[in-house]
Design a protein around this nucleic acid. Structure first.
Lengths: 355, 355
DNA sequence: ATTAAGTATGTCAACGATGACATATGCGCT
DNA sequence: AGCGCATATGTCATCGTTGACATACTTAAT
């Protein structure tokens, strides 16, 4: 049953030329007479020849394949957007993409890295943050690694967003609407220790922007309004539980916030759910802003959020991989701009004394 | 720089044996003395040898890779869930997964199929509905194709959910809550013409279940309550626009429904948004049920929905692919059960005359 | 007429793993 | 001693493509 595709040799035989000539026609390089070209093209069509990229990969030591290591594609649509962009860029460049989800387990990530090496992928993209050890292993095998969004390995190339400026825009927006008691719901910077000498973490930047933004407007954050958690649990699909808990706690305060900035849409989802359950109207009673622009447009009310340019993150990630493969010059780090998308979840602060 | 991984020959040389012996140790087949085994294992460890699956693939004509053709992974989380499950099953079986999104363009799907063939993938999984022509092309190349969720090619193996029973459960649930004016928001069966002689379409089944369910309870649907659209636009991320439009139209009726069943969570998202904007409380004023259980848990209120067993769909899809690769006996079609997940968006019908 | 450059085509050894086949040794049994 | 079988190991062609190299014929320039 397994009817195989024709090989170069068969095409050559049919065309009455050598495999070298067929190769020259296919690769459009070297000298080929018009007649030979016609005969080869006819033979290729007649046999519906398709190059065997496996054989080519063996010979050229280039698989034209990149590995895409994902944290957990089902947990956050952010990963999906990046994955899709990476794939689109790769396909356009004639590359294939092999995916692997490690679900937050380093040993499983290791397993994927081993598989990537066995497969001789030309480069590996991590979204997000690779384990430094695994980057080392890849390097030892001569395979470049690129990190997207988060970095834990200073030696790897890195594409990210300007988290500080992005978060700052959200704070400025809320302050501009008259909010003074603004809560911060995010991840704990301490949870993601990084090489502080070189790259700041996502959490540091977003929390820093909150503090700086408040101060810049002469506001002093209420310590009880700063809620740092573990973001979300990669192993379990918790569906906004963490955000719900934060929002519930905030609502029980004697002086609850009039606005909540959460550093990721998934957290904001939980916040909205808790507010809905508590009977609070958004944005009339309280404003909510997020970060990422992943689920934001799917919520009711649609969420004001800091949009990450997911497509650009993926594209630049792939571009960096390609540059590394071709040993071209390239920046060690690319920082992209975010933009604030104002939707329905933020509005003017209620007149003082409303609660 | 490109430091290459050791080859079998180098391992053999280091261990002082032939490549055949190394191969026997690695494959755990044939006769190998304890001493030889030890030497080989030491050499493998010393060189951190990793088999080159490209070379292996060339020799064995098995790439241990499957192609996963997706419609548009960013449009519906359903695809993400299936993709993840396929990937997990594949990894566990020692396979790799190459992904390709065609975005609803048949010619682009063709391009992906050609790439899959060039790469000599062992099988292709379509999620969802392959173009029959492309399945033919794969078949001509000796590559089995499996379809997940929707089928447009009777000759391909098929894994799906029991859409009829699933939709019926939702209707029964709403009727059980006292609803009599139940709207149906879904896709138009006419948009997805299928081989009616063999496989019913998703739309036919869900709409049929609605009609049958209503009739079974002695209810007659108001024709104005049946809204058939094009589901959603694959090319553009419309974020629930279609669902919003349907819900807005329903709210303007003289006799609006007290419950809305939408045949997909993405549509339900739009419905919830429109109701939120119109100031309707869910489920106090109106109940909403969806289908898929993709975004459902992330919404406020959390959505009652018919859950598709995404993980099982992916797993069975891969299992069928594996069976096809190994030419094992296998069913031509697998139908999985759904289950109704009751959350916050459905509640008792308001007392008659409430609107 | 000789040379050099340009045009056109063919040969063949890699790439690394696999496994059919050949070979060789030891053991038990007749 | 001779046979058969289990054990143990090595040789090498093969998978399909690539590209370095060799070959040969034209044409133009010297």
């Amino acid at each position: 049953m397994k009817s195989k595709t024709a090989t170069l040799i068969e095409v050559a035989k049919l065309a009455g030329v050598s495999t070298a000539t067929v190769n020259r026609v296919l690769k459009q390089q070297g000298y080929v007479s018009e007649e030979a070209r016609r005969k080869v093209e006819a033979a290729v069509a007649a046999t519906s020849y398709r190059p065997n990229v496996v054989a080519r990969g063996l010979r050229t030591r280039r698989s034209s394949t990149i590995g895409l290591m994902l944290t957990a594609i089902t947990v956050n649509p952010f990963f999906v957007g990046v994955a899709h962009a990476v794939e689109a860029a790769a396909i356009a460049a004639g590359y294939r993409v092999v995916i692997f989800n490690h679900g937050g387990h380093e040993d499983y990530e290791r397993h994927g890295v081993e598989a990537f090496i066995a497969q001789r992928v030309d480069a590996v993209l991590f979204c997000t943050a690779a384990s430094p050890r695994n980057v080392e292993i890849l390097a030892a095998a001569g395979i470049p690694a690129i990190e997207i969004e988060r970095s834990s390995t200073p030696s790897a190339s890195f594409v990210r967003v300007d988290n500080y400026v992005g978060a700052r825009a959200a704070i400025d927006h809320l302050v501009g609407l008259g909010h003074q008691r603004i809560a911060f719901v995010g991840g704990d910077p301490g949870l993601y220790p990084q090489d502080a000498t070189r790259r700041r973490s996502v959490e540091e930047d977003r929390l820093g922007a909150y503090h700086d933004g408040m101060r810049a407007h002469g506001l002093t954050p209420d310590p009880a309004h700063i809620r740092l958690g573990q973001y979300y649990d990669l192993a379990n699909d918790v569906s906004g539980r963490e955000g719900r808990q934060h929002a519930e706690a905030l609502m029980e305060l004697a002086h609850p916030p009039t606005a909540i900035f959460s550093t990721c849409d998934i957290l904001a989802v939980g916040v909205l759910q808790a507010l809905y359950k508590a009977g609070k109207r958004v944005p009339q009673d309280i404003s909510v802003a997020g970060f990422d622009d992943t689920l934001a447009a799917y919520l009711a009310p649609q969420l004001t959020t800091v949009a990450q340019p997911v497509a650009a993150l993926g594209r630049h990630g792939f571009d960096m991989a390609l540059a590394a493969i071709e040993s071209r010059e390239m920046p060690n780090e690319i920082v992209l701009a975010t933009h604030l998308v104002i939707r329905q979840s933020t509005g003017p602060a209620a007149p003082t004394g409303s609660n």
